[in-house]
């Protein structure tokens, strides 16, 4: 414990951080709650001296919006699809990477590259890969396919309109899932690989002495011993998934959907941004708090499940 007489020193040293936190974290959180509870709150009107009544109108309105339901559906769907797929893939890749000796460092670096690449840039590359319209070599006709469709055609399949005018919702969603999973892999692989490398090799020797099959070693030893890392990866994956926004922008631009169906792929965060930009801070705050409540509930649920199955 710090000597009582010296305590003011501790406070003094902490004060810059405390001030910054109060101004940029604590106050905004508090203010969000305040704005969400003031009927039809708008920053512009407030600046003009308007007074707002207290009430839950913002929440009611937000929930009633058809677009809110679409955004929520998109967000939940993306989470539910991408988190399990990316976690599973990351686990497989990490285990494989961990079991090979030559080139391990090189491969590790390659797998980590997406993490250090700008996600908008990656989105643009993906958009190009999934594109249906491009220029032919003659530069006149504009109906060639992106590389994905080229591959599909090479194997005798029919090209799919992934992201362009007239594309279907499921096609858009597929592109988003592929992109988000790919983007999420490096971090997960890194965490899981770290976890794998910290598992005591003697467990594997012991399992070998007992004649354990590879599959059983994986399911009964590797996965349980990796469970703290898996839990971490899954929880952060869900939190990240509920905050999904930039990846949609990366592929579809700010229309948040194909040109003929703008906002079709909008997410919760997108909804909040839209409300903000239309000067409805009250509704934006309400939506933000709803998102917060959802993330909290999902995390608590995750924690509950994980506690049962995690060994620390």
């Amino acid at each position: 414990m710090v000597d009582n007489k010296q305590q003011w020193k501790a406070w003094l040293y902490l004060s810059p951080a405390i001030v910054l936190l109060l101004v940029f974290t604590v106050w905004p959180i508090f203010n969000t709650v305040r704005m969400s509870l003031l009927e039809n709150y708008s920053g512009l009107k407030a600046a003009g001296g308007a007074v707002f009544e207290f009430g839950f109108g913002n929440f009611e309105k937000v929930v009633q919006y058809k677009r809110f339901k679409e955004c929520l559906t998109n967000t939940v769907l993306l989470c539910v699809l991408t988190v399990p797929i990316s976690t599973l893939l990351a686990l497989l890749i990490a285990v494989t990477l961990n079991s090979i000796k030559p080139l391990q460092k090189l491969l590790q670096t390659i797998f980590f590259l997406p993490y250090v690449t700008n996600s908008i840039a990656i989105g643009m590359v993906f958009a190009a890969m999934f594109n249906i319209i491009g220029l032919r070599p003659d530069g006149i006709n504009a109906d060639t396919w992106g590389i994905i469709n080229n591959v599909i055609q090479f194997f005798g399949g029919k090209p799919v309109n992934w992201i362009n005018q007239g594309s279907q919702y499921w096609a858009n969603m597929t592109v988003m899932v592929v992109y988000i999973v790919w983007n999420a892999l490096p971090f997960k692989i890194l965490v899981l690989l770290g976890g794998l490398q910290s598992i005591n090799k003697q467990y594997y020797d012991a399992a070998k002495v007992d004649g354990t099959s590879r599959r059983r070693v994986f399911s009964r030893i590797t996965v349980p011993l990796l469970s703290p890392m898996l839990a971490y990866v899954i929880i952060t994956g869900f939190i990240g998934g509920f905050k999904e926004y930039t990846s949609i922008v990366g592929i579809f631009g700010e229309t948040m959907g194909p040109p003929d169906a703008a906002n079709r792929l909008n997410t919760m965060v997108g909804f909040i941004y839209d409300a903000l930009s239309s000067n409805s801070q009250g509704r934006a705050s309400a939506a933000a708090l709803i998102l917060f409540a959802i993330i909290l509930a999902v995390t608590l649920f995750n924690n509950m499940v994980i506690k049962k199955h995690t060994h620390y």
């Binding site: 003697q202 467990y203 012991a206 002495v209 007992d210 004649g211 060994h311």
Partner: peptide
């Protein structure tokens, strides 16, 4: 190793930490 029919006790025991004593003994 697995076909030799040996039992090996490791220096730090290498008990599977996530399994109960019973599960550990049942494992082989």
């Amino acid at each position: 190793t697995e076909n030799r029919g040996i039992g090996l006790v490791f220096q730090n025991y290498a008990l599977y930490p996530h399994m109960s004593v019973k599960q550990n003994i049942l494992f082989p």
